[in-house]
Amino acid sequence: MPYFQFLPHIVLFIIGSLVGLEASYKWHSEPFVQRTIEPIPLAIAIIGGILINIYAPLGFLFLGFVLGMRPGYGFYESILGIVLALVLWVIL
């Protein structure tokens, strides 16, 4: 069975998570305080949710960025991105 057709999806997801982790630790070096929706991850999540229906590996790169952010951050953004992706997939 050719599983490796999903290799680009997985590899790009991992790269996105790594970049997201590094970036979010740059943005937030303070102790974890509270959850708020931030504009940049939200934009990335929305781009990912749209792209995943056009060219899936790139969409996984952007969604991986949001999902892979520092623990506690990017939670609502990633949920929004996934829901958007699902809604678009149902519509299209």
Partner: peptide, 24 residues
Amino acid sequence: IYPATNSMLYLFLEIITASLFAGL
């Protein structure tokens, strides 16, 4: 470009994919 089924590269790529996916 997909390598031919049952070539060694194909099998190797399968192993890489599975280990990355199972790690996730």
